[in-house]
Simulated scan of single mutants.
Amino acid sequence: MTLSTTLGSNPAFAVDTHAHVYNLTRYPIHESSGFSILANETGTAEQYAAVLDAHRISHAVLINPLGGYGIDNRNMLDVIASSNGRFKGIAVVPHDISEAQLDTMVQTGVVGIRFNLSFPASPAIKGAGGARLLSLAEERGLIVQVHYHDEAHLLEANDILKACQAPIVIDHCGRPVLDRGINQAGFQALLELGRSHNAIIKLSALFRCSRQGWPYLDTDRYVEKLIDAFSVERCIWGSDWPFLRAGTRIDYGPELSGLSRWLSDVEDRRKVLWKNPFRIFGFQGE
């Protein structure tokens, strides 16, 4: 099968803004991998395209996986090149990447760079190296995508993020620790960032913070606060396929279904699934 959409002449224009793909035959696990992964946690681009087709999702943003590939973006770049515009990418790049290398990535469909604040293997957002990458992103209009699983790491980087002039995308609802409540410092800092900056929140991977499991009802008040702070115009959705280190069974359809509960208005859901990512990531379509 091809990686371009097979939904026919009337696809449901929508974007999954968070997925990882692998080709371990051509590109084995890289030495810069940030953490170990299991064989059943990986998925190929062809398998992912079939999932998108089944759920009538026309486009997607691929995130180079720190787990498995680290700063080796070759597989993601190959997939984007063969997708006929269906996929764009967020790269993980070293501090010393050359401007020419980064520009080549941009020309081939990379629209941002990612920092994993809670993983030592990720290039750091702090220090001279991080400042250089942020400057390169700002100069090129690239997205700065941020993931963390410990609020302390967001708080440490908060001043850097507030000063950043590039669009900032925060992954996975900021992964609040539900036992700490709405007023936990990291979540409040995230809400402040949403109210005062050019920041976008990704309504994704709630299985990573829910204590109850699907349908993640215990996360609803956090999602409500995020939508209010960031506004519907700066919310996007992502699946986090193929659900690395999930710890329990996760399926694509149930992950997508939460949007209908959080956003009762059809037009609001259309903004989150298409209009917003179309604008933010620069897709082409209807």
Rank of each mutant, 00 (worst) to 15 (best):
T5I: 02
T6W: 02
P11S: 00
D16I: 01
Y22A: 14
N23I: 01
Y27L: 14
I29R: 07
E31T: 10
S32P: 14
I37Q: 09
I37D: 12
Y48A: 07
A49F: 02
N64K: 03
P65A: 11
L66Q: 06
L66V: 07
G68K: 00
G70V: 07
N73S: 11
N73C: 13
M76K: 05
A81W: 02
R86N: 09
K88F: 06
K88S: 14
I90G: 10
I90K: 03
I97Q: 08
S98P: 15
G109C: 09
L117F: 03
K126W: 03
A128W: 01
S135F: 00
S135I: 06
I143W: 00
V144M: 07
V146A: 12
A152M: 12
L155F: 00
C164V: 07
I168K: 06
V169Q: 05
L178Q: 13
L178V: 10
N183G: 09
A185M: 06
F187H: 09
E192L: 04
A199P: 12
A199H: 03
L203S: 01
S204A: 13
A205F: 00
Q212R: 06
P215Q: 02
P215Y: 03
Y216P: 15
L226T: 15
G238C: 10
S239R: 01
T248Q: 14
D251K: 07
S257R: 11
W262I: 09
L263G: 14
R269P: 09
V272K: 01
Q284R: 09
